[in-house]
Design a protein around this nucleic acid. Structure first.
Lengths: 210, 210
DNA sequence: GGATGTGAATGCATTCACAGCA
DNA sequence: TGCTGTGAATGCATTCACATCC
């Protein structure tokens, strides 16, 4: 999965998630309308950037008024594809996997965990919330049956690439990878990586006393 | 904590973690020396980028030969500040916090969890691995006593900003934030955010069928 | 007056391409 | 020959600044 569709700069797409989160907070506080300036302020960006980012995707604002919170929330969800729920599978039911499964923030964001898998036979059959851990050999069948597009990978580093290879043979189109490994996948599959240790390293650098 | 010290572009610093990880893998395989080309290849970058990134921090390579793996590992660790162990605290001992505490990858990377805290009285006193969960009011004293610079924040969204405020009153200089909230902190403190739901949103966008 | 949306200008980061060294 | 380190050139992203509209 090489560049971004839709011509918009990649960093702009990343900020869409920030805007959406902030707009949802404003919605909670029953705020009806917000200007690029106020939005930028709370997110530590510039007003011009907010306007330009949003303008890549349409004309959402009204001069003299700003952006209407609720309609913009719906537009952004539509753009991100989270206005409908995406079935998602979890691979790896170790500590991290189970913690993710217990997180109740996915569903409101448009992601529903529908099955979980583990390569360790001892974990197969164990309950993870409402799900029962399945063996890896069931992956393809389950993914196909439930029409799953996204996978969360929370397996040890050594297992990550083999699992990615298995996922590539299914209808999975995106992988969220927690393992500290660069996955090689066909470019029909998108990958986002979350590497906790690497982030700590960045912090360590940032806070170095030279 | 505004820009990057040391003049190097921020993206270059982020890639340092990638280089280090790959070099550690090469070390495991007893590879002695590696060229920018090979390094770039496995990380899906260009050779020029690898050379330029490393050159921001020194002259590590030998023309005609490449980079020596072990010495470069040590240099990068030193640059990142992970050649000595950093004491780190964990705030929030819910599912995610405990999963992070159980992760055995921190110590080899230079981070030692030395204490954990929770605002929920019911969690205080509970064991988390070798640590005992402390109440938030102990934070300042413990952090000072153990000379802690880094904190991992794994608390619910509502609690994140108040905890960040409390951390700002201590010697903590960097926060790894898992809560889906933009933290406001004095610029003497560095923040890195890991937002799982936001990453899933990005994947959702990436894999949209327009 | 108070906003947006957007070309033009600026500022960064990446890539090129090559001099110089082993 | 093979490779690094690095100025110069290119390509992106951000910011400016203003015409336009409520």
């Amino acid at each position: 999965m090489s560049p971004t569709r839709h011509d918009a700069p990649n960093p702009a797409v990343r900020r869409l998630s920030l805007y959406l989160r902030q707009l949802e907070a404003l919605h909670e506080r029953s705020v009806r309308t917000v200007s690029s300036r106020r939005l930028a302020e709370t997110l530590a960006l510039t007003d011009a950037q907010v306007r330009k980012d949003l303008a890549y995707f349409g004309q959402f604002g009204r001069p003299g008024v700003g952006y209407e919170v609720d309609p913009l929330i719906h537009r952004l969800r539509h753009i991100l594809g989270t206005d409908t729920v995406s079935n998602t599978v979890l691979i790896g039911t170790g500590n991290l996997g189970r913690a993710l499964a217990a997180y109740d923030g996915f569903v409101p964001k448009g992601f529903q965990l529908v099955a979980c898998f583990d390569g360790d036979e001892k974990k197969v059959g164990k309950k993870v919330g409402p799900m029962t851990t399945q063996p890896m050999k069931e992956l393809a069948a389950t993914v196909t049956k439930l029409d799953v597009r996204l996978a969360i990978l929370a397996v040890p580093a050594e297992a990550a690439q083999p699992v990615a290879d298995a996922l590539a043979k299914t209808t999975i189109r995106g992988i969220l990878n927690f393992a500290p490994v660069r996955l090689k996948v066909p470019d029909t599959i998108g990958v986002r990586a979350l590497d906790v240790a690497a982030e700590l390293e960045q912090l360590s650098f940032l806070t170095r006393i030279d």
